[in-house]
Amino acid sequence: MEKILDKKRLDDWAAALTNYEVQAPSQEDGIWGFQPVNGPVRLDHTNTKQPPKEFAFPQREVFFTFEQIKGEAPRLTQVLPQAPRHAVFGVRPCDGRGVPRMDKVFNDHVEDTYYNTRRKNVAYVGLACNKPPSANCFCLSVGGSPVSTDGLDVLMTDLGDRYFVAAVTDAGKALMAEAAKVFSEPSATDQKQVKQAHAAAVAHPQRAVNNPDQAPAKLKASFKSPLWDELARACIGCGICTFLCPTCHCFDINDEVHGKAPLKGQRVRTWDNCQFPDFTMHSSGHNPREGTGARLRQRVGHKFQYFYENFGMHQCVGCGRCITECPVGIDIINVVNKVAENAA
């Protein structure tokens, strides 16, 4: 289903989505982030600082509450997410491609109840990138593109005074059907214009990983390479690159205690991070990935080798956040290219 949406009718579409909580990019303290929409929907953002992964995989998820009952077994009460149905506008195609990768992780062999409960309640309305939102975009290097529909329910393309809106999935059709009257049929010139816009977007120069399909083999051959320590010498071991990554999914589980006698509390999942010092700390004190070099290898290996070996696609979607936000300039494109060049 392909329609035309006049830019002036965008708010009408959002308003018509009454049984959804509509989220869209908005700026708070200079940071673009997804916020519930109250007022006009803004799509003039570059890209949000954090990817939309929080809608299906929030930083904090309560699993269950536990309560000690005198003389009885502790009582567990499962706490399933009560997330409303979300319609998230302004999702960039690279973040869209992160969604199937996260779906894969949380459903391969074992289904994650909490992730799936949230995931089936989210519809992603993508916005194609007419020009790269960041200086460090490299989606084309990892099989993506500024107009990819992978993982999105709808893809909107900005044609100046109107959007070309294409439904990708049934959920997308349903979103558009909620406000059928705000759309109009695309004319032949609209079709031509959107093809031109897409062609121009794809042709726009961007940074590149050199021959990315050889990356898995090159990385595999460089496990013991001294380059890792050298490339990570400036790394400070913070969590920016992974917490802001659309496809990082590692988590930790902790119990939060609210009362000691009788014992009462919650078991909670929180994001975790392979760049943190104690991520691989054994209870003996041995840490197989002590230095930042080994941790950089783990992150880059996961993005360009391990995931590829398991699922046949790179885990990295080329959004460039880890490059842009690294306080000391660790650059994953530079790392993969350098390691590949010097691979045995």
């Binding site: 913070c238 969590g239 920016i240 917490f243 991070n273 010092p277 104690d278 306080p327």
Partner: peptide
């Protein structure tokens, strides 16, 4: 988002174990 960049980038935060947080035990 507790990414600890503020602590990791600070030359004064050199404790091997940050008392207030457990990622460096």
């Amino acid at each position: 988002i507790r990414c600890f960049a503020c602590r990791s980038v600070c030359p004064m935060c050199y404790c091997d174990e940050c008392v207030v947080d457990s990622i460096t035990f």
